[in-house]
Amino acid sequence: MKNIYCLLIVSFLCIFSLLPAGAQTLSEKDFQVLNMNDGLSDNDIHSVAKDTEGFMWFGTGSGLNRYDGRTFKVFRMPGISYRRIDRVVSLDTDYLLLRSEQNLFLFDKKYERFLPVCDSVSKQPVMFADFVADSDGSCWGVSSGELSEVNFPSSFVQDTAFVSVRHVVNNSQSDPFVVLCMGEDGKMLYCASRNGTVYRFTPGQRQLKKVCDGQLSSGRWVSSLLNDDSFIWIPTVGDGLYGYDLTNGKLHHWQYISERMGSSCRITMSFVCSR
């Protein structure tokens, strides 16, 4: 079933690339465009998340925006009107986890306030290259060669969110972690390094296992990671799209190849991964 799904995607890309420019333009009625005229604080949108109540949250170039399906409400960090928010993750019914200028913040939805996230031991700001929340509301983050777990207290009485940070895995500094995503069970994690190597981490066993070696071209890097129905999607900057099938251990690679007489979409397959 997964192979059929991948084939459909590739077929669509190939056909789409060969269509005339006019045929690729969808009619205006197929889209609803939302911008600053509709209440957005900024037209630069860096992240989007949906919370447990159904609200859409947007991290923009100048603050946090909540959308209820009709109107936007803008929340700006105190003291800096145009501070960019480039990552938004829904933790639970009460909090969002945000990243702004490399630092993490909690957004308290009830009291509509931003709380800087700091390590309760070192008292230093917590900074991650990427982070996700599991089904229990705990947070996992990667920074350089480290995978860390963050546990939040049930409430915060001060203006700073002091949290417990536990470094659980150290990876080679020559190939640091850059992105991660949750596994099929909402507990397991997949981490990807800069060169496209994907690792599986099982929290209860505290084991890090290499499951896929993307072998990206020099100068390319992984931009994000998504686990969907036992298939790991690995988008890259400059090297197309990789897909690792967890069921059979195969690594797929899609690239757009521009040729003098036209354009084409190429798929290659490698068998360098282990199950």
Rank of each mutant, 00 (worst) to 15 (best):
R166Q: 11
R194F: 06
M188V: 10
W233M: 05
S193Y: 00
R166L: 05
V198H: 10
F162V: 04
Y256P: 01
L180F: 04
G219I: 01
T247L: 10
N195I: 06
L216A: 04
L189C: 00
R200P: 00
L246E: 15
L251A: 11
F231W: 13
G186R: 07
I257C: 11
K209G: 01
L189Q: 03
Y244G: 00
P176L: 08
K250F: 05
S230Y: 14
S263D: 12
V163A: 00
A161I: 09
C181D: 07
W254I: 13
W254K: 07
L246A: 07
L216R: 05
K187W: 02
G238P: 06
Q205N: 11
Q255R: 15
F162H: 14
L251K: 13
W221K: 15
T202I: 07
K210C: 01
N227L: 10
L208C: 12
G238E: 13
Y199L: 03
G219A: 08
S264R: 14
Y242F: 15
T160F: 07
W233E: 07
Y244F: 15
V178Y: 02
L208N: 05
S217D: 11
T236G: 07
L241G: 02
M182R: 07
P235S: 09
S217H: 02
G183F: 04
W221N: 15
L246Q: 14
P203Q: 08
T160K: 14
V198F: 06
V179D: 05
D228T: 15
